[in-house]
Amino acid sequence: MPTDAHQKVMSLGSHTGDAHRHGRHVRPRTWGRTLLALLIACGLIGGGLYAAMNFIGLDQNMVREKCMAVVGSESYTLSPEQASNAALISAVATKRGLPERAAAIGIATSMQESKLTNIDYGDGAGPDSRGLFQQRPSMGWGTEAQVMDPAYAAGRFFQELETFDYSAMALTEAAQKVQRSAYPMAYAKHEGMAKAFSAPLTGNAVSALNCTLRAADSAGSPAKVEAALREATGITNAVVDGPRLKVPAKGKQGWAVAQWAVANAGVMNTESVSYAGLVWNRAQGAWVSAATTDGYVIIQSATP
């Protein structure tokens, strides 16, 4: 007599035989589990990518800091350090009563000589050349400490520029007459950039200078901003009001100050600059419409 185990085996064989006789193949029922596993894997990958993208978006180290000036259909980019020095050169020119053209010549010259950075070594002009304009103490430009002071160096450059009529000269010719470089035509290639930055920095272009910056890593100092503004522009009636600096200004002067402040936002840890119905802030990196204080440029420092 067959045992129960034997009957189960016989029964299984019988079903299998029926399946073969009817042309059907018996497959393990694993496709459902495979599909589920694939869906879970895709979900995990998609979630991981989404999280990574959001992490990158929030990672401030991925932000490329830059300052941009636009003139017509052309745009030019400088680093925040370079933009700050371009702003100082333009401010010194304005303080001396010089036109935008002089500021453009100064910016182009410094770009050629030092990449608009205050370097403490000679960069081809001579073994003792220093600073924004690579001025040489041995050639009568001042002491080493003086030519390393950006405000002094810019003032000294313009002092020399004012000794002749540069207004009718090509930019590279005017720069060469001051610098007496071994490469007299080298300044010409920086003319477009210099004009693009000198226009807003002298107040002749409205909201044409923007900076893209990371979030400030420390608090700014309105007192420090006031001191820098006073040295560069000669403005002495700015008022510190908590984390803000209020600068009385109107029209062209207001836009020169406002865009000077944007160009210096990186080095000064400035959060926003507002003037004449517009505000620039770090979060957007652009000028947008906003309520502003009439007759004042408001420079808001970053807070802890």
Rank of each mutant, 00 (worst) to 15 (best):
T34R: 10
V247G: 06
Y50A: 14
A87G: 08
A205L: 09
E226T: 12
A256F: 02
T293H: 04
L98N: 09
M268Q: 12
P184V: 11
A102L: 01
R244T: 06
L58T: 15
Q112L: 03
V71D: 05
A93R: 04
Q135H: 05
A263P: 00
L229T: 01
W287Y: 10
Q300P: 03
P222N: 08
D59L: 02
D165E: 10
V273L: 07
W31L: 13
R33K: 13
V26C: 14
G32F: 08
D123W: 13
Q60L: 06
A52N: 09
A145N: 11
A41N: 09
S114L: 07
S198I: 11
R136V: 07
N237W: 03
S110C: 02
R64I: 14
K8M: 15
E162P: 03
V206I: 15
S289M: 07
T16Y: 12
A302V: 14
F55Y: 15
G277M: 07
E160Y: 07
L132G: 00
N54I: 02
K189L: 15
V92A: 06
A258Q: 13
S79V: 05
L36W: 09
T77G: 00
S110P: 00
L161C: 08
R244A: 07
P28V: 11
H190K: 01
R136M: 11
G155D: 13
Q159L: 11
V257W: 02
A104W: 00
R96E: 08
G254W: 04
R136T: 06
T94Y: 11
T172P: 01
N85L: 04
Q7G: 09
M10V: 14
S181P: 07
Q284M: 02
K189R: 14
G140A: 08
T16L: 14
G32R: 14
P80E: 09
R214P: 01
K115S: 12
S114N: 04
L98Q: 07
A215S: 09
N237R: 12
G203Y: 11
P200H: 05
E74P: 09
G266T: 03
K115T: 10
R156I: 04
L132D: 02
P137E: 13
V26H: 15
K66P: 00
Q259D: 08
G106D: 01
R101Q: 10
S14K: 13
G295I: 05
L213M: 11
A265R: 03
Q7H: 13
G13R: 12
R130W: 08
I299Y: 05
R24W: 14
P184Q: 15
A52I: 07
L44Q: 06
A83T: 01
G122F: 02
S14M: 10
V297K: 00
A154D: 00
A227Y: 05
G126E: 05
K246R: 13
R130Q: 10
H190N: 03
M68P: 00
L78P: 00
R33Q: 14
A125R: 13
T30A: 08
T109L: 10
G122L: 05
D123S: 12
A154G: 02
A194H: 02
S73C: 09
R101N: 08
V257S: 01
K66Y: 08
E81Q: 08
A125S: 12
T212N: 11
P127Y: 15
I89N: 01
A216Y: 08
T233K: 03
G155A: 13
V297L: 01
L98Y: 06
T94N: 10
